[in-house]
Amino acid sequence: MRVALFVTCVNDLMFPATGRAVVRVLERLGHTVEFPAAQGCCGQMHANSGYRAEALPLVRNFVETFAGYEAVVAPSGSCVAMVREAYPRLAAGDPDLAAAVNEVVPRVHELSELLVDVLGVTDVGASFPHRVTYHPTCHGLRTLRLGDRPLRLLRAVRGLDLVDLPGAEECCGFGGTFAVKNADVSSAMLADKCAAIRDTGAAYVAAADNSCLAHIGGGLSRQARLGSGAPVRAVHYAEILAGPEVHP
């Protein structure tokens, strides 16, 4: 299958390894990845902060860039949730844009949706011999309803010891601009999430969103430096799926 990668702006600049991992996983499975260079930001930060007028040009750019692809994949639960939930609402006043949105949206998938539902794969043939816990980020959990798709993919990774995260369904406290506008509450939520992660004894915490992971990883690294517990590394689950190949 020919798959267009929507890498997302945060990953493009801050976490390119996640984008490379998606390319590696899909190519290993025999698919062709394309990267339409006109892509930018999905507009989530604008829309969720109340800047509808500023989000609309980004919606237009997205639907123009990805029109005509059979499948679009993004390694971000919240960006896919933005496209699927908010785009139809944002485009509602503009019939042409609404039609373009309706055309593109059903073909946009979060990585685990593409792998499990579209490509029918749970074993991507990777190995990762570490103890891992998984934090289901809010938009993946409650907007996209990813369910156990990421967990099924991780369970099939050789050597990976997947441990449950108590209170997994609770928000980590990131929330986009919330992390800065309500930094104290955000930090209080983060402290509880980090404690739950450390208590699992995992070496890695995986998730489907690098923005949430930057918040969680930043908290874990700060706390480890200040002496509370062993460092736990935050990693996008795509990078685990791109781990060393165990069978050709």
């Binding site: 890498v7 990953n11 493009d12 600049l13 801050m14 976490f15 390119p16 390894a17 984008g19 490379r20 990267f35 260079a37 992390a179 800065v180 506008k181 930094a183 955000s186 930090s187 983060l190 402290a191 930057a214 918040h215 990883g217 930043g218 908290g219 690294s221 700060r222 430096r225």
Partner: peptide
């Protein structure tokens, strides 16, 4: 990064901040 200037100081009050990567995804591509 352990400390950033305002308004991102609100971020580094409790979290380290990641830096932009040495090579962006689109450059790698």
């Amino acid at each position: 990064v352990r400390r950033l200037p305002w308004p991102l100081s609100a971020w580094t009050s409790s979290r380290d901040a990641p830096l932009p990567a040495a090579r962006t995804f689109r450059d790698w591509w």
